[in-house]
């Protein structure tokens, strides 16, 4: 019996020496010893020190690996003339049943002479139980979903945003209407009529004297090119992308081109012979081609020429 008492006394001394080494003590605790799965557990670590001891903020969260930390509360500090008590609060939870032990937490501090020391808190053990199932009780239906109460602040925010958007839309609409109502500025664009362009191009080609220089094929390609361009602008035909036969078919559909059908057919077919069949015409044929081209253009000059094109320009 004496021996047992001796061992107990020595253990108490060792425990005391560890927990309240020198002037610092660390005491960990929870608010109960039994919980249900998922219950909130209030865990606190209380440090009692002399006022002149500097506590190095402990990393308690890292030590709480056994449990799920839900929230860390602000530590509370109580000071007297000589002592200071700091309590760190945590709300933790555990999602399994069984006995849980939060291990001892090491707290470092500096003594007056600057020496760094460490004190260990006690470990905390508690039991987590599952929800007891009532085997004999009547089976109940699933609970109805809960109705979330109206959040007036949120509804007001939505109404405010909608009003702002409506105001913005009205503002933009009025601005657009104002712009539309503004007097349009008329811009006069002088367009050169297609026949003027074509005749000028033919004159230029004539002055270049291509066939006289032996460039017969080039001459015939250019002269048909000018006439086809003229057809594009004058009759709005895609003449440059059409073959001679297709051009003739299209021209037949244009009433203004009726008077030039025969000449155009002859003109284009003669040019095709030079362009694609290595045919070398005599000088008079080359001259005749120029005359024919000019005739085709002159015969189809529109009687009423729209010289001015008005274009609306935004203010």
């Amino acid at each position: 019996m004496v021996n047992i008492l001796r061992i107990f006394f020595i253990s108490l001394l060792i425990f005391y020496a560890e927990v309240s080494a020198q002037s610092v003590s660390a005491l960990a605790s929870v608010d109960s010893s039994d919980y249900l799965v998922g219950d909130y557990i209030n865990y606190s670590l209380e440090l009692r020190t002399d006022k002149d001891v500097e506590i190095i903020a402990p990393f308690i969260r890292d030590s709480l690996k056994e449990v799920e930390v839900i929230k860390e509360l602000e530590p509370s500090i109580v000071e007297t003339e000589e002592k200071r008590a700091i309590v760190y609060h945590f709300i933790v939870s555990y999602y399994d049943s069984g006995s849980v032990t939060i291990p001892r937490i090491a707290v470092k501090y500096k003594t007056l002479d600057g020496e760094e020391q460490e004190v260990l808190s006690n470990s905390v053990t508690f039991t987590v139980h599952t929800v007891p199932v009532e085997q004999q009780a009547e089976i109940k239906d699933v609970k109805e979903p809960l109705t979330i109460p109206l959040n007036w602040k949120f509804i007001l925010l939505i109404i405010f945003i909608v009003l702002v958007l409506i105001a913005l839309a009205i503002y933009l609409y009025l601005r657009y209407k104002k712009k539309k109502a503004a007097v349009p500025v008329k811009k006069k664009i002088i367009t050169i009529p297609p026949h003027v362009k074509a005749l000028a191009a033919l004159d230029k080609l004539e002055s270049e004297q291509l066939w006289q220089k032996g460039k017969v094929k080039e001459y015939h390609s250019n002269i048909t090119g000018i006439v086809r361009n003229y057809f594009e602008e004058r009759f709005e035909l895609p003449a440059l992308e059409l073959t001679t036969t297709e051009q003739m078919e299209q021209l037949k559909k244009v009433s203004a081109a009726e008077i030039i059908l025969e000449e155009t057919n002859q003109f284009l077919n003669n040019a095709d012979l030079v362009k694609f069949a290595k045919f070398i015409p005599i000088a008079s044929v080359n001259e005749e081609m120029m005359k024919q081209a000019k005739k085709i253009v002159n015969k189809t000059i529109p009687t009423k020429i729209e010289k001015v094109e008005e274009e609306l320009q935004n203010a």
């Binding site: 073959t243 001679t244 036969t245 297709e246 095709d272 694609f276 069949a277 290595k278």
Partner: peptide, 10 residues
């Protein structure tokens, strides 16, 4: 014909 014209290609 002894020569090809674009119509033949088309």
């Amino acid at each position: 014909r002894g020569y090809v014209i674009p119509e033949d290609v088309r």
